[in-house]
Amino acid sequence: MEQHELATANQELTAWDRVLRARQPQRPHTLDYVFALCEEFVELHGDRRFGDDPAIVGGLAAFGERTVVVIGHQKGNDTRENMRRNFGMPHPEGYRKALRLMRHAEKFGLPLICFVDTPGANPNKESEERGQANAIAECIQTMTNLRTPIVAAVIGEGGSGGALAISVGDRILMQENAIYSVASPEAAAAILWRDAARAPDAASALKLTAQDLYALEIIDEVVPEPPGGAHLNPQAAITTLGERIQAHLDELCALDLPTLLQRRYAKYRSMGRYQELADVLLRSVKQG
């Protein structure tokens, strides 16, 4: 197929096609990006409270001219690695490791790059006992006013609160075949369609594709993938995303801190769709 035809075919993908591509096990994952895009990566471990969660990785790295802190969900390329990484579903200690690294970035004035790729935060007994809700909430809170630039890139699945926990930032990028959703299509289908098999319908209704979320002004940029998806040409996907992250970091690092934080406030404060009626109108709505 010609390049042009492929591009057209890409645009006609359904939401469910995107979901399947986002979950493709051969897609590049966080560490693939870090090793390809950065020099001198030093992975840092542990939350200093309970343990070290392999579902979230992070550390110091040289990205272009800058030293940065990178944080990301880490899935495996095979079953064995996925078991070890818990399919990229973090426990609270994973988020608390991320939290520690965020503060590390702030303390040393290093920009933060986050790679988002998780089906969601791990829902099990131990996670509840150790405060999954609190761990996610603290990450979100910390990112809202972290005094350093933050670029987040969704490189696969952006699964609900577990994704949001490391993706509140100044720029949110999504790869062309990445998804970001309030709930997994399967979970939404089970609740709203009473049938998990209706996941493709739920995927379409949830507006979870990069294209949808760009149109809804939730994300800042859709980053192209090579024809057929990132898994068919990982190196090309990695290079393109790296260039876009670099461009956004250059812009953000040129801003003074108060401006950066002010814009981040405005960015999130304006998220939401509602009607605000004048008194007169409200009365007529209530009567009619």
Binding site: A137, I140, Q141, M143, T144, N145, S160, G161, L164, V168, Y180, S181, V182, A183, A188, I191, L192, L206, K207, L208, L213, L216, I218, R264, Y265, Y268, R269, M271, G272, R273
Partner: peptide
């Protein structure tokens, strides 16, 4: 939890309220 019918817009309310609390 987040209102599924508003998709990621609902999810972002988590960040929005937290932001305002600053």
């Amino acid at each position: 939890g987040a209102r599924q019918q508003e998709g990621v817009i609902a999810l972002m309310q988590m960040a929005k309220v937290t932001m305002a609390l600053n």
